[in-house]
Each structure stands twice: as C-alpha cells, then as structure tokens.
Amino acid sequence: MAVRVAFGPVIVLPSLRFWGVWQRHVDVARSRFLSQAVMPAVEPLITFLVLGFGLGRFVELEGGGDYVKFIAPGMVAVFPMWQAVFACTWEAWFRMENQRTYHAIIATPLGPEDVAAGEIAWGTTHSLLSAVYVMAMAVAFGAVDSPLAVLVLPVAILNGVMLSALSLWYTASVSSSNALGYFFTIGALPMFWLGNVFFPASSLPQALQTLGWFVPTTHTVAIYRGLFTGDLAWSQLGDLAWLAAVGAFCFLMATRALRRRLLV
C-alpha cells in the first residue's frame, strides 16, 4: 500500500556500515562478471571506431581538429552514465521489488539510508570502471593532449555519484517497473545526445542549449574537455559546483525516497 507516513527528519545520513551493501553487490558481480563485462567493454569501442574513425572522416569541425578528439571527452562522460543508470534503475528495482533484498537489509542495523548509500556507491563503482576503461581507450587513440586529464578520475567519481543518486531517486519513487522506461527516454537519452558529446551544443537551437544546461552530463563533458586539452577556464569551476550541488541534492532525495518506500 502506498502511504503518506511521517518518516522522520529530512536529512538522514548513512552509517559507515553501508559498505556491507556494497560488498554484497561485489559478491554478486563476481559470479556474473563475464556476462556483465561484455556490454561496457564493447559499446565504447564500437562507438569510437564507427563514429570517431568512420563518420569522423566526413566531419569537418569549425576550427579544424580531429573528430575522434572531439568526441573523446564526451565519451568518457556518457558511457559511465549508462553504467550508473542501469545499476540504479533496472538492477536496483529488481533488488528492491522482486528479490526483496532491501527488506532483508533493513531488518539489520542498516537502514534505508545505508541501502541508498550502498546502491549509489555501487553505481559509482560501475561508472568509475567504465570511465577508466574509456579513458584508456581515448589515450590509446591519441585523443588526450594534456596531463591534466588524470584529474578526470576524481571528477568521474562525482559524476558517478550524481547519476547513481538521480537514478536511484527515480527508481525509489515510481510504483511500477513500467515507469522505469521513462527515465531512459526522458532522462538518459537526452544526456547522451544533448550534452555536447557528439556535436557542438552551440549548433543547437537556443532552447535546446538552455535545456542542455540542466542535463547533468553537459557539465561533466565541459570539465573533461578542459582537462583533455589543458584549456581550463573559470566556467569549469562552475560546472564542478553544479555537479557537487546536484549530486548532494540527489543523494538526499534518493535517501528520502527509499525511506518513504521501505519504512511503511
């Protein structure tokens, strides 16, 4: 039964024991490692080859430049995005509703806030692994020009947390698995296409550019572009602040949604 019940203070922070949840996910992943690793390994590689080298031969960018170099920073942002989103939508839903894993966990000293932290940590782990992998590919294809690019990794963690939290917030709030599909069409796909990844956002109509500002990965891509080329501007600090603020907000909202759902 869906119920409006007072569930306590607005901000509930997890305990350090949330790692137990993360460790459980690692145990499960170990038994499924090979089958799970295929998609995240193959997709970015194919995209680099097909779009970067295939389509790239026909693309002329304003100001010159290699198309592979243009899409690389965006790729490092969006493929991890898919990882975080999958982990915290379909997989989380399955654990929550079908397996009742969350219900088992909250019978122990862990609460819904710890489950949320564990899920977000796991989504971030998936996302970070993907980021490292796509980065390695970008380096291999000669797309990285600056040693500052190593700073992509800490930003990737922040990116992972933000996207996992956003996805989990959504998952914990909807009443059926059918609704999860909306997150992909209205949330994830625009991130993939409107975030200044495959073509300059400046070529889009103004309305879509404004919309792009609200797309989380737009800001990640902006930071990565700076780090890849070494051309950093103050605006990227603004992007970092955006990620941190939105990430923190989504984390709290995801916790709140899970508490409301589980503590009935």
């Binding site: 137990g20 459980r24 966990i105 000293p109």
Partner: peptide, 25 residues
C-alpha cells in the same frame, strides 16, 4: 525470520550468510 524468504538468489548458501553477517559489522 521474515515471512518471505528474501534470500539473495545470486549468491550461494554460504555467501548469503556472509553478506548478512557484514550488515552487522
């Protein structure tokens, strides 16, 4: 001991016990 068996189907018997033990720190 809840009414539904909310065990982890992806884990073995032993792994289920270990995961649960970890939740208690």
């Amino acid at each position: 001991v809840p009414q539904d068996d909310n065990l982890d189907p992806d884990l073995t018997v032993e792994q289920n016990l270990r995961a649960y033990g970890r939740y208690f720190g």
